[in-house]
Computed example of a mutant assay.
Amino acid sequence: MSKPLSSSIKSPKEYYPPTYGILSLFPDSWVPYAELTRLHKPTGILVIYMPYLFGLLFISIAIGPVDVRPSSVMNLAFILLITSFVLRSAGCTWNDVVDYKIDRETERCRLRPVARGAVSPASGVVFFSIQICVWFAILCSVSSASVLLAIPGLGLVLIYPYAKRVTDYPQVILGVTLAWGILVGGVVVPEGADFVIARGTAEKEPWLALGMASLFVAYIAWTIIFDTIYGFQDLQDDLKSGVGSISVRWQHHAKALLLLMALLQVSSLVALGLSLGVGKDFYLAGCGGSAVGLCCMIWKINLKRPAECAWWFQYGTVAVGSCMLWGLIEDYVGRTMALGS
């Protein structure tokens, strides 16, 4: 599948084949494709998987444990994990193909497979197409409604890498792209399809539509926060190459913007809780835990230090995302236990 780009494009001398970790288990010819999928960087899988899981839990809570039993939720959650892994891999492949010239000018990214010439752009497109076909096949096996909603989601995936060329706010586009998984996760439960596609339940119980919108906005705000922090790793290179980002546009007032997004995120989570009629556990874990994590992250991080930005992106994303997830899980489990008693 791979072929040389040009004799004038040489792999940087600093690149060495992996000798440890999961990438070292692959044959040498497979390593560049495994690198394209970011198999060795699992944080990105979580930020794509969580919206799917949030959508699934939201609908499960809204409909109730009588119709959506825990065994069904766990089975669907596993399928969505596989779906998220494939989509994340495809998205990374597409980003590398579109951005390989920019990546060559970015210190952190210049050893990526397409940028260093280990995979040609054409081969990357073929690899991306295969991944997308697998993604659609998995969704088709779950529900037709999820496929219908996945199509515009794929359009967002294709558009996102170009956003930095035309706007200083590509993180907003990324936020909508990731949050779209909430809608897809909401229709893998057959009873939830009518609600998410704006029929049936949405007409009878409009406050649930408000809840879905609140969850959507919360995840967009959260994406802006963690991806802005992520973007500060490449601030100097982005300034030289001229690409847009919130990190560049708000470099001198970034923490003020991050605090505003944190307020929007927590407020949206509170609105979500009110729409679902959740118990105190959701407000403690989902809202309170997220608020504490966000404040700690924004207060302590030094955005001028790329290593700190990388650390907070990796661990802060997991911590705050886990709080939101745990709040939803606790509420669903609590309703299930109340039903059993």
Rank of each mutant, 00 (worst) to 15 (best):
G340C: 04
G44V: 03
K240P: 00
M297F: 07
D96G: 05
Y52L: 15
L25N: 07
Y52K: 04
A209Q: 10
G192I: 08
V266T: 14
W299G: 00
D227L: 07
V125Y: 09
R335E: 12
Y315W: 15
F313S: 07
A319H: 03
C140R: 06
S322N: 07
S24L: 10
Y20R: 14
G181L: 13
V278A: 13
A118R: 06
V86K: 06
S129M: 13
Y160E: 08
S29Y: 12
P32L: 13
G211D: 07
D227V: 01
L259H: 14
W30E: 10
A34P: 00
C92I: 04
D281P: 00
A137G: 11
T93V: 10
L46W: 12
L263R: 05
D234N: 09
T83H: 10
L239E: 15
I159W: 13
S71Y: 02
V176Q: 05
Y283D: 10
S267Q: 01
R165I: 02
P18Q: 11
I159Y: 14
M261V: 01
F216Y: 08
Y230M: 06
W222F: 15
S8L: 10
Y162I: 05
L294Q: 06
G273E: 12
Q251G: 02
V184I: 15
V266F: 02
L23A: 06
R305V: 13
Q314I: 01
R69K: 13
Y219H: 13
V97W: 04
I159H: 01
P27W: 06
A307I: 02
S129I: 04
A137E: 11
P17L: 14
G288H: 09
I224Y: 01
V184F: 01
W222V: 00
G181A: 15
G231W: 03
E308M: 12
V217N: 03
W311F: 15
V134K: 02
L81D: 02
L139A: 07
R249A: 15
Y162H: 15
S241P: 00
S341A: 04
F282W: 13
T177I: 05
C323W: 11
V134P: 00
F216K: 04
G321A: 08
V189P: 02
F26V: 05
P121R: 13
G175T: 08
E203R: 08
F78E: 09
G288S: 14
R38I: 03
T43H: 11
I225K: 11
S129K: 08
N302V: 04
H40Y: 13
P51K: 08
F85T: 05
S214N: 09
L183E: 00
C295A: 15
L25C: 03
A150Q: 12
W94V: 06
R88C: 08
C287V: 15
